[in-house]
Amino acid sequence: MMPVLTTGFALDARLEADSEPIMWLGLCELRLMNDCRWPWVLLVPQRPGAEEIHELTPLDQAMLTFETNMVAQALKRVTGCTKINSGALGNIVRQLHVHVVARSEGDPGWPGPVWGHGVRKPYRREDLHLFSERLRQAL
């Protein structure tokens, strides 16, 4: 786990179990979902207690939008996908986090959502590190 930079912030245990850290962006920690069926990342704003985007300060909202767009563009360049899905649902994990998923026609579950489709397929360790490094370089 990467060191926590914001006093009082703790990553939700489910997010920590399901994803791997890639890098710090500024406001957010960028994490890779450990499911190789889709290139799927999370941005987790380092704000204790935040559950909704509207709970962030206007400056943090702007920063979250900037970081989400930056990650979406990099993910599209790295994967060559045809569609980027992004969203902050929080129905199960209440801690504020934004999903950014690279989608292409014919991927598992297309055109439906990635949530609840099939069984998660973890990355091989070396593939996880390789993809993370490619995304870091694109950012």
Rank of each mutant, 00 (worst) to 15 (best):
C36R: 14
A13I: 04
L43Q: 00
A88G: 09
P108L: 08
E52D: 14
L30H: 01
H97C: 04
L135G: 04
L30S: 00
R37V: 04
D12F: 02
K121C: 13
I53C: 06
E52N: 11
E105R: 13
L25E: 04
I92N: 12
I22Q: 00
E20D: 14
M63H: 10
R136V: 06
R47A: 02
S86E: 12
V4C: 14
M2P: 10
L25K: 01
V119A: 14
R124H: 11
L32Y: 03
E52L: 10
A13Y: 02
P58V: 09
L42M: 06
Q137R: 11
T82C: 10
V119C: 12
Y123C: 07
R37L: 03
V119L: 15
E16A: 13
D18C: 06
A74C: 10
V114Y: 00
R37A: 03
P58N: 13
W40H: 04
W110D: 13
Y123V: 07
V41L: 06
T82Q: 14
C81M: 03
A102Y: 02
G8A: 13
V41Q: 00
A138Q: 07
M2R: 11
S132M: 06
A72K: 00
N34S: 12
L25P: 02
T57S: 15
P111D: 06
T68R: 07
K76R: 14
D107C: 09
D35F: 02
N91K: 09
R37K: 07
G118A: 05
V93T: 10
H99M: 05
M63A: 15
E105C: 10
R31S: 08
P3D: 11
F131T: 04
I53D: 04
N69D: 12
E133I: 02
V93D: 05
E16T: 09
E133Q: 09
G26F: 06
D12M: 00
K121R: 15
G109I: 04
V98N: 10
W38Y: 09
Y123A: 07
W24D: 14
P108S: 09
R14N: 14
L5G: 11
K121F: 12
R125G: 09
